[in-house]
Design a protein around this nucleic acid. Structure first.
Lengths: 114, 114
DNA sequence: TGTATATTTCGGTAGTTAACGAAATGAAAT
DNA sequence: ATTTCATTTCGTTAACTACCGAAATATACA
């Protein structure tokens, strides 16, 4: 029983992972951009991303030395699709999310990483 | 940020709490019936129930020496209402849940507790 | 080939959480 | 009032998780 259903909610039960999901709903981001947004170590961000990926919420796409992460456009699990749709009205009034949205639009991977 | 949104998902991110929620969607249950269903210590069940109650998923009603727990019929948070509705199609194929449903219909608090 | 950069994996640590039994609380019945 | 029974609270322990820095991997470029 600890397999499928709880994995979904476990993935959503960490504030930083929710911030990542909400940020990715704005646009595609690479690891270093997310690191900049959340102010966490690279390895920690990578860990969070793998949790979200394993649960099915996001997918990754390699682009040279970067790895782009994005919302899963075609989740095989209908629950994932449902949750992703609902996230808009579930979380939008929290201050962190609001300021994150502004920051995301200003993030520039060239300036941050290179 | 660790306040509202993650509390909802944290409450759902434990397999035993999901089992409790699903069982309560069948009918009202007291603590000792849930203890019997989950095969956990009373104190552990009580703990899980308080997490679900604090998050807003369930309410309690005292009935003599028993405390009846039930799905919150009028959640003030629309996310709770949405999640409770969705739970039906989110979780119904897992073996534990299926056998739980059968067990719940056979639970008898008089036989169990007294 | 060697170097630089982005990301992941690994090992370890601090904080959190689920679990228990024992003690405390509360409500009904003798 | 005392006992009984259901539940909650408390104190403790084991398991889990988020986090970090360092090492390993992977990709592009000189």
């Amino acid at each position: 029983m600890n397999t499928q259903s709880t994995a979904l909610f476990k993935a959503l039960s960490d504030p930083n992972r929710l911030r990542i999901l909400k940020a990715l709903q704005t646009r595609v981001l690479c690891v270093c951009e997310i690191r900049e947004l959340l102010q966490l170590a690279n390895s920690t961000v990578s860990q969070h991303l793998s949790v979200l990926r394993d649960a099915g919420f996001i997918i990754e796409e390699k682009d040279g030395k970067w790895v782009n992460y994005m919302i899963n456009p075609k989740p095989s699990d209908p629950r994932i699709a449902s949750i992703l749709l609902s996230l808009d009205f579930w979380i939008n009034d929290e201050n962190t999310i609001i300021t994150d949205k502004k920051k995301v639009s200003l993030l520039d991977r060239i300036r941050i990483c290179c």
